[in-house]
Design a protein around this nucleic acid. Structure first.
Lengths: 237, 237
DNA sequence: CCAAAAGTGTTTCCATTACACCCATGA
DNA sequence: TCATGGGTGTAATGGAAACACTTTTGG
């Protein structure tokens, strides 16, 4: 985008983009999907997938389209919600770019096979980014930490945790979601009571899954409820 | 904004605005600050105050500036937080306008004396709008109801309720905030225990305030804490 | 002294915690 | 039969709900 061009039209216009913070859990680790930038600025640096919003689409539609284009993931299967707008004047060296960040959660998703964009997407442990072992383009680290904080909070009073589990799932798998996101162990028996007692959180399928060892676990699918009340608090009392 | 102009520059550019949902409580009623539009589209219709984001400022700064310009309120004294971005293609008949909505809460604020804009701002009961007795421009009714739902939720697990109270305040005043926003009565004695027991929610000033009748109430000011844990749930159990 | 509003005490109830224990399966 | 993980039972804890009761003021 040419900054002079924008000034010439008389009113301040901005480029509006969507950026996606897509999370999944693989092997007991919380992962974020990042692309390697194929152009300036921040060429070669990792970034959240995203792109321009097109003229006919809503912001949500733009987010789903970018999700598909950059990662090959069908947004219909994911939990997708808006996180917020980020528009500091200095966040993009090319000029004013306002981005609307989205938060997406999905069950163990495949390693994306190069989207239509040249950029290749990869799953990276969230810890690697937050502890400084990988630095992101633009203000994407800020977006990532806001997204993570949002998830941590939402696990308390909603049923979104189930969005991380491929159906059908066991209660241990669901509990692992909480443990990985909160970085804290939960008592299996109390967790079970809470989840099965909350109407509409999970529905038993009636089937079981055999493990390599131990008693087979009952299988569940997601229920209709989205809110969890009373909440399941993360604070250790 | 001229739609053809925007198309002519080759990439999709948008007008980015901020809109403010500013709430206060006056006389036991939750009020929202609305302006009467002085220009097309929606001329004469009520709308949330707001305006264009300027090139050098952050979104937050733009929100505070518009707050000052349109209402004469100094944003430093208010709780102000971003609500989210609204960018449906049809939301403004002039073309694509993405707005970043902000939520502001303040203690019984004065009736604004006409800002720099021609539009005059007035406090309107939120109920009048939500029950259809006043209809708003653009998608501002949607923004208003999202803002209200955000406040209702935030009262549960944060101390923002105190932002509605002019300091110093009594616990009855603080409780009234909850009752007005939630539309439900709370037990005064249990409320008192909860609030005074939560570290950093309110600090006693040591003073008292005499009422027209009854025992004088102790006065408090806001404490340092922003989070309230365990939360104060709105659901009647 | 009475009404009104602030503030305290107490009992009951319910959810969560912590932890002991039982169950079902593979090796 | 033993190790392993799934699942149940239960007593102790702590917060919240309900409501009776006391205190302090103005009329």
């Amino acid at each position: 985008m040419d900054d002079r061009l924008v000034r010439s039209v008389g009113v301040e216009l901005s480029l509006v983009t969507v950026d996606l913070a897509i999370f999944t859990i693989r092997g007991g680790t919380l992962m974020i999907l990042l692309v390697e930038r194929g152009e300036e600025p921040f060429l070669g640096r990792r970034a959240l997938p995203g792109g321009r919003v097109r003229s006919g689409e809503t912001l949500d539609e733009g987010a789903r389209r970018e999700l598909m284009e950059e990662t090959g993931i069908d947004g219909a299967r994911l939990h997708l919600e808006q996180l917020g707008a980020y528009g500091d004047p200095g966040r993009d060296p090319r000029g004013r770019v306002v981005t609307v960040a989205y938060l997406a959660l999905g069950p163990d998703l495949p390693e994306p096979v190069g989207g239509t964009d040249a950029a290749q997407a990869h799953w990276i442990p969230v810890g690697d980014v937050l502890e400084g072992r990988a630095s992101l383009a633009f203000d994407h680290e800020r977006i990532l930490s806001d997204a993570l904080e949002r998830i941590r909070g939402k696990l308390e009073y909603t049923t979104v945790a189930a969005a991380f589990c491929p159906e059908p799932f066991t209660l241990t798998e669901l509990r692992t979601v909480y443990e990985v996101v909160w970085g804290r162990g939960l008592d299996p028996s109390n967790f079970r009571r809470k989840v099965t007692g909350a109407k509409g959180f999970v529905e038993p399928t009636g089937d079981q899954r055999a493990q390599t060892a131990g008693r087979p676990a009952a299988l569940y699918r997601r229920g209709d409820a989205t809110l969890l009340s009373p909440p399941l608090l993360r604070s250790a009392p």
